[in-house]
Design a protein around this nucleic acid. Structure first.
Lengths: 199, 199
DNA sequence: TTATTAACCGACCGTTCGGTCAGTTGGCAA
DNA sequence: TTGCCAACTGACCGAACGGTCGGTTAATAA
């Protein structure tokens, strides 16, 4: 059981609330387009107060992207525990990924915008690449087992699949309390695995 | 037959070359992350020389995104001339879109990163929305004709389809002279229309 | 040769940026 | 009621930003 740590001193923002606002604003205005003043104004505190919580702007980015990556990594790792054919594990990781995208939308959206111009961004991209490789290997395995179409390169298939899944951050807007999360995953799996054509 | 317009005065960069470097750099470092000095350095000219060609940074963005939008709009409009069922026109517009994405990669990539924080960005998003609506209507029509699966909302289907298509800008890197453009469109159509599952 | 024209240079301006620092505020435990 | 400590403030700094301007360079047309 998790006990709330004893909060001492003057109450105010904790890191979680700060991170959420930072991730949302970085996504909305872009990392470079967001000034520390912008964040401070949204939080209702001064710029220098932010430096009480983090060492600088790039630590905000690091913590926010790490949060998304931790969720996605957990989704991929949970897949290993699923038994069955590779294609079943693939569908499972798609469903888990959709859940993470919805639950951690501001952080995953930010992650998917990162391009690798700073050390923090390169670290995030490196972690993303590991996840992509794991999924790509899963697709290749499913193809070797005869469950994925053999006429398309598995690496390309994996990219198209997660191109579709990740596009979620471009248009999905949360309804109250993540309603329809499962229905969304259902629809994505239907279209991705059996195609949009009526057969 | 197009005649090259008579170039007078001191030779140097023209708008096209400038736009290409601008689009590439905006994509790589982000619009706000790119300074006019950065562009000047890449072009081998001074910052002020850029202002001879354009009125300011945001005009560079406008011209670059317009170029992508003109290509995509042309792809959608060409679809109207195709006869046959709606699903055939849908496949046609996917293929034409892939061509545009490949041919105008730096400009389309930039367009897909734009978020709507300035007037120029909002204009680009507005034009994009028109294109999205046209494609969404096409999917709805194909579903009404019984050629697209009826168990997924057509608007969602359209988003997933072009989520997949547009993801191309995230991983596609040009081979010399656009080789494999058709094969790429083939693979995307296969996966999108009939699914990645071997049936 | 000369006029015309496009392309370009370098110094400069006001503003905003990320970040620093010495001090102040306020809730809680003892 | 006192002492502690996390949370926060406001003034400030050097650097980088987008943009301006008056003048210069190098091609072509006449």
């Amino acid at each position: 059981m998790t006990t709330t740590p004893v909060r001492r001193g003057r109450p105010g923002y904790d890191l979680d609330r700060l991170l959420l606002v930072a991730a949302q604003t970085f996504t909305e205005r872009g990392y470079d387009g967001t000034s520390m003043e912008d964040l401070a104004r949204k939080l209702g505190i001064t710029k220098s107060a932010i430096y009480h919580h983090v060492s600088g702007k790039d630590e905000l980015l690091r913590l926010a992207t790490d949060r998304a990556l931790d969720g996605l990594t957990a989704a991929v790792e949970a897949t290993a525990a699923v038994d069955g054919r590779a294609i079943d594990r693939l569908e499972y990781v798609v469903r888990r990924s959709v859940e993470v995208l919805v639950d951690e939308l501001p952080f995953v959206t930010l992650l998917l915008r990162v391009r690798g111009n700073t050390a923090v961004e390169r670290h995030a991209i490196s972690r993303r690449r590991e996840i992509d490789h794991a999924i790509s290997a899963l697709v290749a395995q499913a193809e070797a087992q005869g469950d994925v179409r053999p006429d398309v390169d598995p690496a390309l298939t994996a990219r198209l699949l997660f191109g579709m899944v990740n596009s979620l951050v471009e248009w999905y807007r949360p309804t109250r309390h993540g309603a329809g999360r499962v229905e969304l995953a259902d629809a994505i799996c239907k279209v991705a695995f059996t195609g949009l054509r009526q057969s």
